[in-house]
Each structure stands twice: as structure tokens, then as C-alpha cells.
Design a protein around this nucleic acid. Sequence first.
DNA 1: GATTTTTCTATGTCTAAACTTAATCAAATT
DNA 2: AATTTGATTAAGTTTAGACATAGAAAAATC
Lengths: 235, 235
Amino acid sequence: MTDRLLPSSKALTIATEVRRRIVDREWRQGDRIPDEAALAVEFGVARATVNKALQLLADEGLLDRKRRAGTHVTINPARKATFTIPIVREQIEAAGMVYSHRVVAQKIRPAPAEIAARMGEPEGAAMIHLRTVHFGDAKPFQLEDRWINPRAAPGVEAVDFQRNNPNEWLVRNYPWLRGQLAFSAENADARDARLLETRQGTALLILQRTTWNDLGAITSVRLAFHPGYCMVAIP
Amino acid sequence: MTDRLLPSSKALTIATEVRRRIVDREWRQGDRIPDEAALAVEFGVARATVNKALQLLADEGLLDRKRRAGTHVTINPARKATFTIPIVREQIEAAGMVYSHRVVAQKIRPAPAEIAARMGEPEGAAMIHLRTVHFGDAKPFQLEDRWINPRAAPGVEAVDFQRNNPNEWLVRNYPWLRGQLAFSAENADARDARLLETRQGTALLILQRTTWNDLGAITSVRLAFHPGYCMVAIP
DNA sequence: GATTTTTCTATGTCTAAACTTAATCAAATT
DNA sequence: AATTTGATTAAGTTTAGACATAGAAAAATC
């Protein structure tokens, strides 16, 4: 009943035990907990091992650690959630559906003001503009509206995106250094509705993402998910 | 031009340099990179330091590491994004607005099927149901629809949620062990629209969250943000 | 009393060395 | 040919010890 899983390393065992003490309120919010040296003695391990365990909990947001001041249980634990940015095809195939995609527009165009600003590129800079629909079992799953900066991704002009999913090609060929990501909700406009085969005005989950490498902004994309889609994170 | 920031530790310096080699395509996707011992020699540090740096990049999703097989650059880097689950009051105050909240409903009620299932509690179990509107400068910012399980959070029945923001009280008093979090989009229904002072049908960003501790599900909440709200994550 | 300086301590980081473990490859066996 | 066994390798983990450093507390100064 006490141990649920077997955290195979000493550091994880200690982290789990300390987490339990916090959740079970043996150590209350704001309390100072024993220092690393003391816990090392208690658990019969080296201080470095305790350090690793407590760092983990500090990363989780459960502990506040300061030199000399010691380690305290966070008062207002603004915990973090991470989620993996999904690759559409894998996502669809993981759900047991057959993946396909259709590029409905591909054109080299000057970047409109809003996109250029988001990417930090001059307004009107030539970019590749792509609109793609991703299908699961022939039902529209996701609508992708993407701008690609050929100056940050040399060679991209020559890619046939009918065959290569643009996201996958970029991710495989141009890893990014820095990214920005935002969720929002929008009412489907006429085009969204037509491509996602839904009614205008339907609420859509929107994921807006821009990525950069050493050469500048690689790409900026707006993903509109099919109505009812739910994006799950693991905290 | 080369170093943008000063990663004050050797491990971070190495991680930054390895990340650069990947982004600059000196080490391509799928390539095997030199082993820890070799990198330790190259950078003039102990192997443990290289290990720490490479673990960091593996956590980021840039590297795949396997015993005996070595370290490879991830072929399809499904990178992760983390975002801190915000505390409404802090979020509103950080934006320079004045925070206030109003509990529009508070009642002990049997949990409806959907909520009970989500929380893993028996259908019809007595729970505290709360509906709260959070305001920034007197404008509705977020609508909170929360179910609290008094069996996992003893003492919650006695709390005056008119004075204590329910989220903050829970977070401060009952840290959770496990959580579930999902984003979606919904068209505002009549009540959403009235409480958020918008029109029915407007697309709303919905955040659904459930948390557990040793005793079971603590709370399950549906947060509806004001129209146009954007939830930003860091890499 | 207010400010600056010094001291001291708990965490942060690193090292060198050892041991553990998963997985690969090759050799031996069925 | 297929399977088992065993050696080897590279990452995973831990340890003891050391030094660095932030920053709280105490001491010294103004």
C-alpha cells in the first residue's frame, strides 16, 4: 500500500518519499526541511544523491531552495505541466486511424505584417505559404496554415510538400533553438469551416507556434484542430 | 556573436555547445555522437559533467541515449513544451490589473456521472460544487466551475470561498501528487456568455484539470477564459 | 540607529573512481 | 538456421571529497 511503484534509483526513491511527506502534510507549506547533509544521513546515501532528488522536486515546483537559507516547501506551488508537441501523423496513427494530408495551397508570397512581426522578419519578406489539411481516416483532423522562412531553412524551396508533411520535414531537417507556443480558441471562419467540414462559428482549438534557429525564424504556423479536439498534458 | 548568454556552469556550457552543433547540423539527425568519455576529454571535464549535459538535451528531446548503443541525435524530435499552471490572481495582477472574484454558486451536491467518472469517485458522491468568476479590473477574466471532494481534502467544508480564492486555498493546503490537464475549445453557452459578458456561441478556451493525492481525487475544475485569451508556453 | 563589512552555512557544482545495467555483437550450442 | 550464452561496451548511478558562492546573520563601523 505504501510504495506504489519501484523507483529504481536511490534518488527517485528519496524524491518519492519527500513528495509523500509534503502531500501527507508532514512537511507543511512554508516549512524548512532538513538540509541535504541531514537527509543524506537519514537515508544512508551521499549528499549528491539527496541533492539530485531535491533538485527534481524543486524543478517540479514543490520545493524552494536557496543557498544558506535552506530548502523550504513552496507556499504557492505554481506547478508545471509539460506536453510533447505532437507530430500529426504519429498522433493520428496512434489513434488507430489512417493518416493522409492534402496541401490545398502553396505559394511564395511576401509575409503579411502580423506574421513578419511574429517572426521578427522584415514585412514583405518572401516566404513560403502553405495551407494543409491533415486527415484521419479521411476525416479532417487538423488544418495547418504555415509560413516558412527560406533564409533560415535553406533547401526548403525544393521540397515537394505533397509528399513530405511540412512539419515533419522541418522538424527532421531543421531543429530549432527557441520556440514560442500559444493556445487560444477561435470561431471557425468560412474557410476553416469548409476545410474542416464543420459549420462556421464552431469553436476551434488553435495552436500558434513559431520557431527560431541561428539564422532567424524558421517557421510560424497556426494549427486549427477539428471541433471537440482535446489537447492533453501530463503534469 | 557565438555565445549569446553565459551558461555559468560547465554542464550548461557543454549542453549549449552540443545543442549548437545539432542546430547547425554539424551533427545530423540520426548521427551517433562521440561517447561521454570522448566528450569529457574534448571539453576537459569529468564524465559526470558531460553526462549531466547530455541528460539535459535528452530531456529536451534532442538526443536519444541508450546503454551500449550510445547517444544519437533524435530523428524526429517531438520536443516538449512546459508551461506553469497559472494562479489566476497572480496572472491578473502581473498584467497590472486589480483582481477580484465572486462566487456565484456554492452548494454541496451529488457528483454527476461525468465528473465522478473523471475523478474516479462513485457517482452521486457528495461534493462541493463552486462556480466562481474571476475579474481583472472588474472585467470578467475567467469562469471557474469546480467540484471538490471533501474526502480528499478534509477541512474544506469550513472554508469561506467568498474570501479565499478556491484554487489558491486548495493549492496552498492540499498539494497534489498526480494531475491531469487538457485544453479544448467550446462555444459559450447561455450561462458562460452571461457570466463572461460576451455573446452566446463565442469561442472560449477551456482548461479542464483534475488532481489527486493519496486519498483520491481532490478537485476537478473547468476554467473558461474570456474570449481572445491566449495561453502561452515556454519552449 | 543605520549602514557597511565580515563571517559562516547550505546549496551548487565539479571530480575521479567505482560499480550497475541494458543492449549489442559474436561465439557456442541446439 | 535458430537459439542460447557470454563478453563487451556505453550509459546510468552512486560515492566521497573538494571548492565555489549566494545570502542570512552577526559584527563592526559610521
